[in-house]
């Protein structure tokens, strides 16, 4: 199965593509407006690219916003070294196909101190390999604005975050002292060293993301579709058992089953779901009757309640 559908072909043969419904069109318009505003107001924007479905939508919107020009900022992928192999292959193809500038950053402490999700626990691992790594990359690039694909419906502290989310020079977020944000007028004034995280998908929900992927024929990592895959059960999650670095613990057995992923992160920390959804229609139908949220498959959100807020205050996206 090819990782990326021939997008250019899809686009041009599909001039007949039906127009977006007003709901998705309104969300798209808002996101494009935010992209253009940030690109115009900031000197060194960058787009956080995590390869997941939200990032795929974000990238698609960026391409639309600046068409017929190129996307006028680089993509930043904060890698941990523990992503699904299919994600990396997908990323490289996207970058090539769409003529994008990609910056990849891996926290050197990962290799130097052998930080892994198995040895350090999900909380410390995430702190070092994602939060700290992100700070390093943003500092190195002197970026004053960073786009992210976070949605307010994902998690309680995100529900309160502004579209332009102000950060101090050490990347801290002060949730109690956010700038008021009225209408669609964004305050992009910052001092040297300060920065803004900008969230064009703030008002999108998970269903919106999938319906937009379908309507716009946006390529996504195949792990989102159900397929027979090897896995092991660990801490109540189904972990993909493809990477040779995954060592089975006593009592664990490799199994096979038709599974897929609702979100994608580091493979040892991301749980699959049993599903027969092999098409976008299937996924949307499954979602509309889903009784659990998408972050349920994420180990890092379970550490403690309010854990996302804590991580965000320290600079996590």
């Amino acid at each position: 199965m090819s990782d990326i559908r021939p997008e250019a072909e899809a686009k041009h043969s599909a001039t007949q593509k039906p127009p977006l419904d007003p709901h998705l069109k309104a969300l798209e318009n808002e996101a494009i407006h935010i992209f253009r505003e940030v690109a115009a107001e900031f000197e060194r924007p960058v787009m956080l690219y995590s390869i997941g479905k939200d990032s795929s939508v974000l990238l698609h919107l960026a391409r639309k916003a600046f068409y017929p020009g190129r996307v006028p900022f680089p993509l930043l992928h904060v890698n941990t070294g523990w992503k699904f192999a299919e994600m990396i292959a997908f990323r490289d193809k996207v970058v090539k196909d769409y003529d994008l500038d990609l910056i990849e950053h891996i926290n050197p402490r990962g290799a130097a101190e052998n930080v892994t999700p198995f040895t350090h626990g999900s909380a410390l691992y995430t702190d070092i390999m994602k939060t700290e790594a992100l700070r390093q990359a943003l500092d190195a690039g002197k970026f004053d604005a960073a786009f992210g694909g976070a949605r307010r419906d994902e998690e309680a502290s995100r529900a309160k975050e502004r579209i332009y989310s102000f950060r101090t020079p050490d990347h801290r977020w002060d949730p109690r002292n956010q700038r008021p944000e009225l209408w669609n007028i964004y305050n992009g004034m910052i001092r040297n060293g300060e920065s803004v995280r900008a969230f064009p998908l703030s008002n999108w929900t998970e269903v919106d993301i999938w319906r937009y992927i379908q309507a716009e024929d946006i390529p996504i990592v195949p792990l989102y579709f159900a397929e027979k895959r090897p896995y092991v059960e660990r801490d109540g999650m189904m972990i993909l058992a493809e990477d040779p670095r995954l060592e089975l613990l006593p009592g664990e057995v490799k199994q096979e089953g038709v599974i897929r992923f609702r979100t994608l992160g580091c493979f040892p920390l991301t749980g699959a779901i049993r599903s027969n959804a092999t098409t976008l229609d299937d996924i949307i139908a499954e979602l509309e009757t889903a009784t659990v949220s998408e972050r349920q498959g994420r180990a890092i959100d379970r550490d403690q309640s309010g854990s996302m807020e804590k991580k965000k205050r320290e600079g996590y996206f």
């Binding site: 307010r152 529900a159 309160k160 109690r176 008002n203 804590k310």
Partner: peptide, 24 residues
């Protein structure tokens, strides 16, 4: 508690900031 997403809000039992919610 579903809406009061910030820790200070949970602690004080009040809503501090605008929360955006989505339903259909």
């Amino acid at each position: 508690l579903l809406l009061d997403g910030l820790q200070a809000e949970r602690e004080q039992g009040i809503t501090i900031d605008v929360a955006y919610r989505y339903f259909s």
